[in-house]
Nucleic acid binder design. Structure first.
Lengths: 152, 152
DNA sequence: CTTTGCGTGTCAGTATTCTGACACGCAGCA
DNA sequence: TGCTGCGTGTCAGAATACTGACACGCAAAG
């Protein structure tokens, strides 16, 4: 298909590989989440809420790597579908703490299992040491990027 | 800001970390590309063309992890701005081989420098061995995910 | 030579996300 | 006490990407 005559260092760029891995992972997650009627962002939001109940819209947005606005429309959908609840009035300030409903928790269970199977598949062929190294390396990358981002 | 009382294993999930790293990397790239009037997908397309001249729209799309349709509108923009050229007639079949113009090559140079600086910053704190390990691990993840994707 | 499969470019419509901007509430400081 | 900085929720508009569908051309199989 490709002329493959000039195959260069695109495949040796960690940045490109990172994007590729993330893209493939997202596609794989979408594939297993679709039968459940969920998107990746849906799942991320629910998982976040399960692990940290009472998160605000903005905090959820940061955790799912989208903007507050996007997360807000997502939360409205989830609320309408009965997966999450938000108080009509802010208990303090303007923050509306969000919580999972039993129904949301139930659909999250299936999604979590599906996603976990994808992650297991992704890690097949990697030793424990590899996974530990990956964790350390990715954290280092994130920290280095963040330091320069907000700092300078 | 967060109640940080339930800090769970979100930070130990390689999938989440992968998404986080990719997100931070993309943000950092957008930040340095914005002054140049380019987006990440713009840059990816140009870089792809520099390394593999004559790529088709579909091949470009696959390389930049977007759909053919999205890449097509991007190419139309780039063509209108004089960064790339596509023959009006397909030399063979329907494939329209795309090439960089001198102007496109020039703006790519600045972008490449900017992006490279981001990648260097990302890799700060990592040894050569770490980088080699990251390459190997990411490739393994991609392959494992792909095998299960299209195969099963 | 005909036919089937595959990849491609393209059109139309939809959905999702983002950027920009506004007002509000809390915390710290003079 | 009054004020400034910061974070938040929300509204509106625009940009971007995606899904679905169509016709065309090449290549392999009959």
């Amino acid at each position: 298909m490709s002329q493959d005559g000039t195959g260069v260092d695109l495949e040796t760029s960690l940045g490109y590989l990172l994007k590729e891995a993330s893209s493939v992972l997202r596609a794989a997650m979408e594939e297993v989440l679709r039968p459940l009627g969920m998107t990746v962002t849906h799942y991320a939001c629910l998982e976040l809420l399960a692990q940290r109940p009472g998160l605000s819209n903005s905090e959820l947005a940061r955790g799912a790597f989208v903007t507050r606005q996007s997360m807000n429309v997502l939360l409205q959908n989830l609320e309408r579908e009965g997966h999450v609840t938000r108080p009509a009035e802010a208990p303090v300030g303007k923050v509306l703490p969000t919580r999972l409903t039993p129904r949301g928790r139930r659909s999250l269970e299936k999604a979590t299992a599906a996603v976990r199977s994808v992650e297991v598949r992704m890690l097949a062929g990697l030793t424990e040491a590899d996974q530990a190294a990956a964790l350390r390396i990715l954290r280092s990358m994130i920290r280095s990027l963040r330091d320069g981002d907000g700092g300078a």
